[in-house]
């Protein structure tokens, strides 16, 4: 059980001036599972490598239970990283791979063998110890890589894009396996992903990073309901945005004034955002926050229908559950309502 703190952690690679990671601050409580989320190239792997100790920070500090670990070399730091492409040693058997860390710790052979079998059991792959890594499928290799990391009982477990190389249903299985094992063993875990859904499903807390800079560090639902910036909102699937001026719980836009009590700013220029599933359809143009619109097109996606709705020059996306709402043909005139408690005002830019 380790309390992990990153303090102004930065990395500037020698061939560039722009930092790959710029003053990252995180505080990960003991036994928590946190996600580093961000588009490819934003510095997630860089952060992981610094925590693991295979990359020395340009500045900043890393604390395990309040003590700096910067001067502890990787092999004694106790932060084990599972790389994105598994990196099973191809010239070793699966069993030797899993037991590698214990062999490095000079544990005796019999104990290693026993623990390897336990670990294979834990990742639900009993009996593969004598195979070569190349004889396993991608998903199996991922589990072996996980077992190889867990066997040394790390203080901190670092998973770099653990699900990105798997296909859809393997991904679900693996996600649950990770969650279960992490809960059971209570290891402080950081995992990296570029997929916001994955982060939301797995993490206790998400650190959203763009271009080396931490944007927001919050619980998953906050990113949906109260994103801190337009970029964060877009990254989490937001599509409906409307510029305007915010003052006294009112958002004034080209399409009219909307009452909006929820906001990330007090007053000034802002952006109105609302999720597609929160917009309500209607036919009567009364009530607050309601405007006339016209259906441009729609796609039926099984359990729901996705509409493109035009209001003057603006286009909104609306998602209507297939069974709860009547359907509107393309070109028909409708009204849409932005419920006041679903609107979230973002800072502009």
């Amino acid at each position: 059980m380790t309390h992990l703190v990153l303090n102004e952690l930065s990395q500037t690679y020698s061939n560039t001036d722009k930092p790959a990671l710029d003053r990252l601050n995180l505080d990960i409580k003991s036994g928590m599972l946190n996600a580093l989320l961000g588009p490819s190239g934003c510095g997630k792997t860089t952060a992981m490598k610094m925590i693991a100790g295979i990359l020395t920070p340009t500045s900043g500090d890393i604390l395990f239970d309040g003590k700096s670990v910067l001067a502890i070399p990787a092999e004694r730091r106790g932060a084990v990283m599972v790389f994105q492409n598994y990196l099973l040693f191809p010239y070793m058997s699966v069993g030797e791979n899993v037991g590698f860390g214990l062999k490095m710790a000079r544990m005796n052979k019999a104990t290693i063998e026993k623990k390897v079998l336990e670990m294979l059991e834990l990742v639900q792959l009993p009996g593969v110890q004598n195979r070569k890594p190349s004889q396993l499928s991608g998903g199996q290799q991922q589990r072996i890589a996980l077992a190889r990391a867990l066997i040394v009982e790390p203080k901190v477990l670092l998973l770099d894009e653990p699900l990105s190389n798997l296909d859809a249903h393997l991904r679900d299985e693996m996600r649950e396996l990770i969650r279960d094992i992490q809960r059971k063993m209570g290891i402080t875990t950081v995992f990296v992903t570029h997929d916001q859904e994955e982060a939301v499903m797995l993490a206790d807390k998400i650190a959203l990073i763009f271009e080396g800079v931490l944007q927001q560090y919050d619980e998953p639902d906050v990113f949906y309901n109260q994103p801190g910036s337009l970029r964060a909102a877009k990254f989490f699937g937001g599509v409906n945005f409307l510029d305007g001026e915010y003052a006294a719980n009112q958002m004034t836009t080209e399409l009219g004034t909307f009452s909006a009590p929820r906001s990330s700013l007090d007053t000034g220029p802002g952006v109105l955002s609302i999720r597609p599933e929160d917009i309500e359809f209607g036919t009567t143009n009364d009530g607050d926050n309601t405007i006339s619109a016209r259906v441009n097109s729609h796609v039926y996606v099984g359990t729901y229908t996705k509409y493109k709705i035009d209001v003057n020059d603006f286009r909104f996306e609306v998602i209507a559950e297939a069974n709860t709402k009547e359907s509107f043909p393309d070109g028909s005139n409708v009204t849409i309502r932005f419920p006041a408690d679903k609107i979230w005002i973002l800072p502009k830019g």
Partner: peptide
């Protein structure tokens, strides 16, 4: 000893 390790790690990664 610790700070020497850090110094060496930085030096090695640069040079």
């Amino acid at each position: 000893k610790a700070s020497m390790y850090l110094w060496w790690a930085r030096f090695y990664s640069k040079g």
